[in-house]
Structure formats: structure tokens, C-alpha cells
Design a protein around this nucleic acid. Sequence first.
RNA 1: GUGGCUGUAGCUCAGCUCGGUUAGAGCACAAGGUUGUGGUCCUUGGGGUCGCGGGUUCAAAUCCCGUCAGCCACCCCA
Length: 446
Amino acid sequence: MSEISTKPPSGMRDFLAADVARRRHVLGVVQRVYESFGFVPLETPTIENLTTLLGKYGPEGDQLLYRILHRRERLQRALAVPAPTELDLSDEGLRYDLTVPLARVVANYRDLPAFYKRYQIQPVWRADRPAKGRFREFYQCDVDITGTRSVVADAEVCGAVAGVLEQLGFTDFHIHVNHRELLRAFVLAAGLTAEQEAPALIALDKLDKVGRDGVLQELAQKGFGPGVGEALLGALERARQPGALAVLAAEAGPFQAPAQALQELFAVAAAGPAGKRLVFDPTLARGLSYYTGPIFEITCAGLAGSMGGGGRYDNLIGMFKKQQVPAVGFSLGLERVLLVMEERGMFPPLGVGPQVLLCRMADVPAAAAVQVATALRSQGLRVEVFADTPQMGKQLGYANTLGAPFAAILGTAELAAGTVALKHLQSGEQAAVPVADVARHVAQRS
RNA sequence: GUGGCUGUAGCUCAGCUCGGUUAGAGCACAAGGUUGUGGUCCUUGGGGUCGCGGGUUCAAAUCCCGUCAGCCACCCCA
């Protein structure tokens, strides 16, 4: 194959007009709802220094970073050393999420508001293996609040994403909630060490998918004793029972503080759009290493992964400056939302392309057609001028291809009368309409 | 990272099991069905070194090996 591949890189996509319209529809709702919560926009560079990105996501995350090669002489120098490593060859990478860039920004601009509420809608890149609903370039829609440990902030970020999904027409999503300290308490109570926490949590996260026996099997494979697995699972299953959170919150001990924190979160969130969506899920773990408190994940029937996730990360900003700044955030995955909406046909009619195709006879000067088109556009119409003058059948056929609802035909008779022959393509009805009245006619028939 | 499936025209695919005349269909595209009217219909046409490389054979889209790419399910994530 000597031809150059015309496909976009693996895991990345082109968006044609209809795709862009659907994406903009969702993004418009996201932006409107986020701003209604008082969040202000932020945009950061595509590229960050590797020192900013590395060590924030855990080892799996570092592995998935897109790295940018040194340029020119620096690359030559780096290649000259024996057995150069990734770190020798690159100094920058594509951003992996929007949370770490936010942490950098908060650490960098000391005159930001004490309680900085920012939203950010930008693409991120992960060198992951592509799958259904998973891409290497995808958009995240983040809301975060820095500078406060208040449960109000936790409830507000949940409320913002719940508000977005409701505005888009979702009725069956849930926000699973857990607490990192609660998880740790369960693991320690079952007799595991702190180092065993991570692998144990990964196994537990699969409870819904592989079932009780599957989890026990995986725990056994990882070298945990059978008693340990049973103890852990038993405790978590009890925690899943209705009212269990209240029991945990009532007992003095390591479970009390995080359980009370979650109770408070549920109580405050109940007053907002997230209220009826929150469900306590003691098995929720989440992969990113920077979470410290409550953690969230959005699930929706029929979607394998999650539509979004988030949590509290009180130590991340402190990695960029001496002073610790607490923070909490939530991220919606645009393409996950789009995937479900497409499968369910949740999009309203989205106007794409011209409303009117201006067709002209061969004996009408091009300038006259452009002049009429300009007049129509000043009425607020989306108008395309057919560039050439083939047979009228060709021009109308093209109007069909475009999906334009109207064709405006301009011949010498219409030109002299100051009208167009306005044809409604679907009904075939056609009438002589003064140029000044076209927008009104289009509005009536649309 | 693990397991499975699929690569034939711009798109969706048939043909492959049992190798054998110029590799097909539908859709899309273009021209025409007479020159100011489309969507249906009819006719005609352009377009493919059958993903790539190697092997077996007189002969490979078809059988074998490798490779690349895509898809699906796990894992993980948004």
C-alpha cells in the first residue's frame, strides 16, 4: 500500500457536521449548568511539563502518558547517551486529565479566590487501548472547588453533574459514593496491611461483575488467606444493607468519621439535584491515587464503564507548593454521555447546514445571487449559494443531498420582481415570495 | 495486559468450507431519460494489484505461516 493512510490515528476521530452538532448540544448544556453553579472557565495548555504530570496518577497512569520528544540538538544529545530512557528523551507530555493542570494553576496563581470554583472542558489524551466508548483523545467536563473541606463543596460538584444529566434528559443514572478512609478502615479491620490495600480494593471493585466467588478467587490468587477474604466481603456486604451507614456512623472507631462525613454529604446533597441520585456503595474504589476522601462514580444502565467520576483530593495541590489546599471535583466524560444518548436517541432535532439553497438560472448574474443571499442572511437565515448553474434538477437534487428544507430559485423574472420562487422541498409547495419576506415564510413552514 | 472475531469498490457485505474462465450485489457517486423543478422509477458508466509480506500449487480472494489494522468481551478508566 503506497497510499498514505487516510484514517485518523488509533483511538482518535474526525467529527463531521452531524457529530459536531451533537457534541455542541451536550457541551452547551454542560457549560450553562456549570455556570449556573457559579463555576468560572479555565483553559490550560495541551502540553504540560512531565514534572507536572508524573507521579500524580499512580504507576498505571504514568504508563499511559503521551510523551513529547526533545527537539533538535537536545534530542541528539539525549540519543548519544548509552541506552537512553523515556525520561532522557522527553521533557513534556500531553495532559492526562484536567485535575492535575488545575492543581498546578492553583499553586501558580496565588491571587485566585480563596474558594476557587472553576470548570474546564477540554480534550485529554491517554495512550490506552481503544475500546467501545474509550478513546485516546476524549473530552472531559470538569468542575472543581479548591480551598475548602466543606461538605457543601462535595455536594455542589455532585449537584452540578447531576443537573447536567437531568437537563440532557437522563432519568436513570446514579452517583455511587464511597470514602477512601472508610475503605481503608475495612481493609485494616480485615487484617490486611496498608500495602495490601490497593490490590484488595481492585478485587473488591469487581463484586458486581464477577460476584462473590469471583472476588474470593481473585483474593486467593493474590495470596490473601481465605479468612481474610471472607471477613472483608462479609463486612462490605453488611455495609451494603440499608441503614448500614448509620450503624457505622454510630460506632466509635475508625469507621465513624468517614461514615459521618458521608451521612452529612447525603443530607446536604439531598437539597440539590444530586439528592435522589446518590447511593452509598462501599465497594467503589476508583483507580486514581490522588483521592483522599469521598469518591464518586456515575453509572447508567447499559453502559459498561462510567459516565463520570470524581472525589476529594486534599493533598494534590500541596505537591506543587508548600501549603496544602483542599479540593474536590467531578468529571463528566463527554463521549460516554454521547454514547448513551446516541443509543437511546435522546437528541432533539439539531439544525445543521443551510436552511435555504439559493439556486439560479444560467442567465442570472452571479452577483445578483450573492446579493439576494446577503439579504436573506441579514434576516438570520443560513443560506448557501449554488456556485454553478447546471439544470435546475441538479440544483434541487443537491438541496436534497444537503438536507436543506428550502430552495430559493432565482430567474430573470424573479430578479425583476424582487422575489424568489421559494420551494419547500418536503411538500413540493412553491410560491413567489418577496426577498424581504423569505425568513417569515421559512419560519412558518419549519 | 488477557481472550475471541473480522479485514474484498467511498460505505454495508456476498464469494472462501470443496483453490480454476474478464471478482459480484446493494447503497453512494457521475451521465442520460431534450434544454425553469428534486426526492420514486429506468438505462449506462467510473471505481478494487481481494489489508500487507511470505509459503504451498500448473493455478490463491479462497489453503498455511507471519505481520499490521479494526471490532467485541474482560481489565482499567471518562
